[in-house]
Design a protein around this nucleic acid. Structure first.
Lengths: 227, 227
DNA sequence: ACGATTCCGCATACAGTGTTCGCGAGGGAG
DNA sequence: CTCCCTCGCGAACACTGTATGCGGAATCGT
């Protein structure tokens, strides 16, 4: 029995009205994730922030996964599409990429979610529609366009993750740095040692131009007329 | 206190010898993941397959995360670098990309792990060393090369995930398909509807050439002399 | 050769997770 | 008004990862 939360009515036809809306639940969960990270988004925590017990949440959501879907959808709903319609497909796709990136920067935990699951909700459908609209003048078959949107989304996730840096705890970072340093000092990885030395002296390169350059390269490569 | 498993000696200086090796533990966990998926890799399951209790595993590994690190390292150790050394940096990087992809295809759960954590272990260091060696003749600064390796790895993950298709359970897939169909039929997403229609009629496009094309495009874009 | 020391294996237990069951109460449709 | 459906939720279950403390074996220093 196919059962998507987006096909289920938010309010039942009969009976008392629910005390919370999906939007409110999503916003509450997002608040928790923003300030304490994704692992803190437990059923108990969200229910508690809503002022009720864990079991009550299951009246709105069939599983924790669906709760996460609600959160992702809400963030996708924050995106702004008013800068579209330039007439240039590449410019429009870059706008979409930047909007997407902005969402990830506002809610870093979204990166982890976007890396694992493919967003399928009302807001994701709107995003997809806009992306396809941007490519509507291109003479490429529909499936390629769909793949392009998928790869573009993945690329934004990758680049934004790199931009945000290591998401791990300081102890893990320190442990890894110690190990990499040991390997570099050990002498059997000369190229690695050179990079470690260079990274220790110079600061991180500016990431802003990298984003547009990489995305543009990929898109033009994918959508070249020759297919 | 920095504490990486790769800096900890596998066998202590004194005391009895451990009954299992890290390699054996990793192989056991990999076996479980291969046949029952990553969530089935619990401390109890791995310990049970090794013929002991859960607490024993913690003599070898400080946490479940470290167990996963062992698994990732083991798979990276399967890669074959004998096809390198062509003299052409792009060809060599493509070989590395294909080797990496082969590892993901052999162990699909690796995709999920690679999406979340950055691999840092002996085998990952070897991979990195080979990648940097391939780019050694290029006149690009070291940090850019490092970024390139990271982006290349992420790209391979993305493409291989797309190649493997939806990793979700059939019920979830069906539910999502039903929802997308409903949105397409609803009429307010014309471009989406067109793609859904096209996808329903034609089969999936050949992914093989896509892989090389996308990777090549990205690499040449990143490593252009103009930087 | 022989203690002293150090580490291994493991039974047990704990805190915390997602999730289910079953009930009483209250609102909406007829 | 009445019936029935739905909501909220206390309590419990099956798990998870992880900590503790112990007996005994292997190794080192002498």
């Amino acid at each position: 029995m196919p059962d998507s939360i987006w096909l289920r009515p938010e309010r039942a036809a009969r009976g008392p009205a629910p005390e919370h809306s999906r939007e409110e639940i999503a916003a509450t969960a997002i608040g928790i994730a923003d300030e304490r990270g994704l692992p803190a988004v437990t059923m108990r925590a969200v229910a508690g922030a809503l002022g009720s017990g864990p079991a009550s949440l299951y009246r709105y959501v069939a599983s924790r996964d669906e709760l996460l879907e609600l959160m992702v959808n809400e963030v996708h709903g924050e995106l702004d599409y008013t800068r579209l319609g330039s007439g240039d497909w590449l410019a429009d796709l870059l706008v979409l990429a930047h909007e997407s990136r902005a969402g990830y920067l506002r809610h870093p935990w979204m990166i982890e979610l976007a890396s694992t699951r493919v967003a399928v909700g009302p807001s994701a459908m709107d995003f997809l529609e806009h992306a396809l609209a941007a490519m509507s003048t291109l003479d490429v078959d529909a499936i390629t366009k769909l793949e392009t949107v998928g790869l573009l989304g993945g690329m934004v996730v990758m680049l934004t993750r790199a931009e945000l840096g290591d998401q791990q705890s300081p102890e893990v970072q320190q442990a890894r740095a110690a190990y990499v340093g040991a390997v570099a000092a050990e002498g059997r990885h000369p190229h690695l040692a050179a990079v470690v030395f260079a990274a220790a002296s110079g600061p991180a390169a500016p990431t802003e131009p990298l984003f547009d350059r990489v995305v543009t390269r990929m898109l033009t490569g994918l959508l070249r007329a020759e297919g």
